[in-house]
Design a protein around this nucleic acid. Structure first.
Length: 604
RNA sequence: GGUGGCGUAGUUCAGUUGGUUAGAAUAUCGGCCUGUCACGCCGAGGGUCGCGAGUUCGAGUCUCGUCGUCACCGCCA
């Protein structure tokens, strides 16, 4: 379904500027109306079915598959050439379109076939290391090593075509809204804040390095000061951090900035873009996006990127459950629970499995307490020794649990327990089928804290980035109680995935200096790192705000995939390697010398 | 940096409590086959069980190390 939409949108079944020398039609194009036409097709041999006196060849290109036929009446040249063919040979086939005597309803070209006059081999193929089919026999590693073969598979092409379609829809929407697409440099300057930079040595400036941008943040702000008013760019960004299924060292952002706007203008504009994309790409209407303050999201879902496709909200039980001599609870900083509807019938085995699940180091809980709310109004819990039926009834009231439901309770240190409950909630959502991939529930999470205390470096860090403006009504607390200050910062969250984030920026050099001061920069360091920006603020900086969307994540969400690798043509593996070109790699002594570099490596 | 899973034929995998000659499917090659479309049938070839050490009469199987890969935690303003 999605594949069809994607293909039809950008590319019809017809190759629009066909070169007659190689083909008159594509392999997805011919129909019953073309019968008796003389045609030339080119493509890859998908499969050969040799029935003895008669042979069928499936010829494939990105538009589809067309069946070629050879029989015992065919010319010797044809039969000789056919003998040489194997999977993935690139051939050119000439013949006439015929109606099939037995039709295949499963493919669009299934009513016709090509009665061949001649075949020529344009390019032979070794036996490929895995089959080029939707359900390939190749594993991930092999597919990545031969990514150019993997890219021939329809399911992979479908994802990249979807990506092209999303990019197209973004550009057409933003161009229509008068945004100007502007490129910003890729070789820039390393900064201490944020993620680790990729660095590039400079030959002409020995001992000095460029950094690759983690985002074009300062450049888009300078474009606002440059009067560009509405900017966007679909741009590669780089972060030298460990990878995940949804994190690559180079990834693509839809980067946007606007002048003379406040937070609401940004939210409205990009809610519009998001709705447009859902509409254009998936033909899905999504309703108004709720706006939820950060603290509410943390309270109700234990996460700043809640999946609001389902309820099962977290409830604080700390006050309710303490004081019954149950040491685990009495000694806990925080006790919280969730209520899973209709799960009172969970078996001992299921409960044991969940208990083991929360005890995994990644979750890190010590154990799982449950309360079954029986249909007859009684309760059965794993802590009946400590709690009476009346006690458990109070728990059920807090969690709004009905007969037939089950309550899960975790306890411990507050942050750890809340995030464990959040994970448990998502896991239960999965188990109960509450996270349907075809349901989309976006929301804005707003009012993020401006700063975050970091125990390791014993200082505040910008939660978003150092250019984010505090809420005006909180500015007075900047020095007295920095942790309390809220920012004009917002995230777009869809189905529990952080799709985008942005903020209203500081556009006043004095306030920007206060921010750098709070973040532990000396005035010299601030001037050294960001003097150009502070200076620019002194020449008439307009109020401005912006946002960046994770393009890869957005496309994988649209494609219904969990990994962004599937929507990137040439992704890197878990260790940041491209196994096809085998990078990163060593460079020659000569190159190092030219760059004035010496390696200091342990034995490898 | 850490936790866990996986690593066996070209490929995807199975391999019981440590015990005879390591299997299946698929791919490849050969033969048969006139309506297939995951064609079918018959046959053949194909193995450094990731690598190294250890335990043992005996290791694909157990232990340790190492490499690769995947998922996650830390990290990712």
């Amino acid at each position: 379904m999605k594949a069809e939409i994607a293909k039809n949108f950008l590319f019809s079944q017809t190759n629009k500027t066909i070169a007659i020398m190689y083909r008159t039609h594509t392999c997805g194009e011919l129909r019953i109306k073309n019968v008796d036409e003389e045609v030339t097709l080119s493509g890859w041999v998908q499969r050969i079915r040799d029935l003895g006196a008669m042979t069928f060849i499936d010829l494939r290109d990105r538009y589809g598959i067309t069946q070629l036929v050879i029989d015992e009446n065919s010319s010797k040249q044809l039969i000789d050439t056919f003998q040489e063919l194997g999977r993935e040979y690139v051939i050119q086939a000439k013949g006439s379109v015929k109606e099939r005597s037995s039709k295949n309803k499963n493919i669009p070209t299934g009513e016709i076939e090509i009665d061949l006059n001649s075949i020529s081999i344009l390019s032979p193929s070794k036996v490929p290391p895995f089959t080029i089919q939707d359900e390939t026999d190749g594993g991930d590693e092999l597919r990545m090593k031969y990514r150019y073969l993997d890219l021939r598979r329809d399911v992979v092409q479908k994802n990249l075509i979807l990506r092209a379609k999303v990019a197209h829809a973004i550009r057409s929407y933003l161009n229509n809204e008068n945004f100007i697409e502007t490129e910003t440099p890729v070789l820039i300057k390393s900064t201490p804040e944020g993620a680790r930079d990729f660095v590039v040595p400079s030959r002409m400036n020995p001992g000095e390095f460029y950094a690759l941008p983690q985002s074009p943040q300062v450049f888009k702000q300078l474009l606002m000061i440059g009067g560009f008013d509405k900017y966007y760019q679909i741009v590669k960004c780089f972060r030298d951090e460990d990878l995940r299924a949804d994190r690559q060292p180079e990834f693509t952002q839809i980067d946007c900035e606007m002048s003379f706007v406040e937070q609401n203008d940004i939210l409205n504009t990009f809610e519009g873009l998001t709705k447009h994309l859902f509409n254009e790409v998936l033909e899905v209407e999504v309703s108004e996006f709720p706006r939820m303050p950060y603290f509410e999201a943390m309270e109700r879902y234990g996460s700043d990127k809640p999946d609001i496709r389902f309820g099962m909200e977290l409830k604080n039980l700390t006050e309710t459950v303490k004081g019954n001599n149950f040491v685990v609870f009495d000694s806990a900083e925080y006790i919280g629970g969730i209520c899973a509807e209709g799960c009172a019938s969970y078996t001992r085995k299921q409960l044991d499995q969940l208990t083991n699940w929360v005890k995994r180091p990644q979750i890190g809980s010590k154990g799982l307490v449950y309360v079954k709310c029986n249909e007859d109004g009684t309760f059965k819990s794993s802590v009946d020794k400590f709690y009476s039926q009346d006690d458990l009834k109070k728990w059920a009231e807090v969690l709004d649990a009905k007969p037939g439901d089950i309550i899960f309770v975790l306890s411990g240190e507050k942050n750890q327990t809340v995030s464990a409950l959040c994970e448990l909630r998502l896991e239960m959502g999965n188990q109960l089928g509450l996270r349907d991939k075809n349901t989309y529930k976006p929301l804005w999470v707003v009012d993020f804290p401006l700063l975050e205390w970091d125990d390791e470096s014993k200082r505040f860090h910008a939660m978003h980035h150092p250019f984010t403006s505090p809420k005006p009504e909180d500015t007075s607390m900047l020095e007295s109680d920095p942790g309390k200050v809220r920012a004009n910062a917002y995230d777009l969250v869809i189905n529990g995935v952080e799709i985008g984030g942005g903020s209203v920026r500081i556009f006043n050099s004095e306030l920007q200096s206060r921010m750098f001061d709070l973040l532990g920069f000396t005035p010299e360091e601030a001037n050294n790192q960001f003097g150009f920006l502070m200076n620019a603020f002194k020449y008439g900086a307009p109020p401005h705000a912006g946002i960046a969307f994770g393009f890869d994540r957005l496309v994988s969400l649209f494609a219904g995939l969990d990994s962004i690798r599937d929507v990137i043509a040439f992704p890197k593996n878990n260790s940041g390697r491209d196994v096809m070109i085998d990078s990163p790699s060593l460079v020659s002594e000569g190159q190092l010398k030219e760059l004035s570099l010496k390696l200091d490596m342990k034995e490898k």
